[in-house]
Design a binder for these strands. Structure first.
Length: 111
DNA sequence: TGCTTGACCGACG
DNA sequence: ACGTCGGCCAAGC
């Protein structure tokens, strides 16, 4: 499968993450149809064109942290963007219980 | 063709 | 709460 196609599928998923919520690399990959391949998400993120407006900062790692060097430009930008959306960091970490995106792919069949 | 490199992850010690 | 390891697989050299 071509990487351009992979990237587009991943980007489409990232574009669906709502404001004030976060998703992990693995979660995004799985949602795009690539389970257990979080690196596909990392790869797609590296290849995001500047003109494409994508909430890349809503993708965080499975430890609840930003995958950037703390203090780096990217780290500060991502953190500032998330905090502006109401996401709270506790010791550089985000609480999944509160902020994880829970996509509903299929319609709920009663319960 | 082969080997190394990732904005990663989960299990295990 | 660490560090290590194996799994993952497209890119790039």
């Amino acid at each position: 499968m071509k990487s351009s196609e992979i990237n587009e599928r991943i980007w489409a998923v990232i574009a669906r993450i709502p404001q004030g919520r976060v998703a992990t690399y693995g979660q995004v990959a799985a949602e795009a149809g690539f389970p257990r391949q979080p690196r596909r998400t990392a790869q797609a993120l590296r290849a995001v064109p500047d003109d494409l407006k994508l909430p890349w900062y809503r993708v965080i790692n499975a430890q609840g942290k930003l995958s950037f060097e703390p203090g780096s430009k990217a780290y500060r930008l991502a953190r500032r963007s998330l905090e502006a959306e109401g996401v709270v960091f506790v010791r550089d970490k985000i609480d999944f219980e509160r902020y994880r995106w829970q996509p509903r792919s299929a319609a709920p069949l009663l319960d």
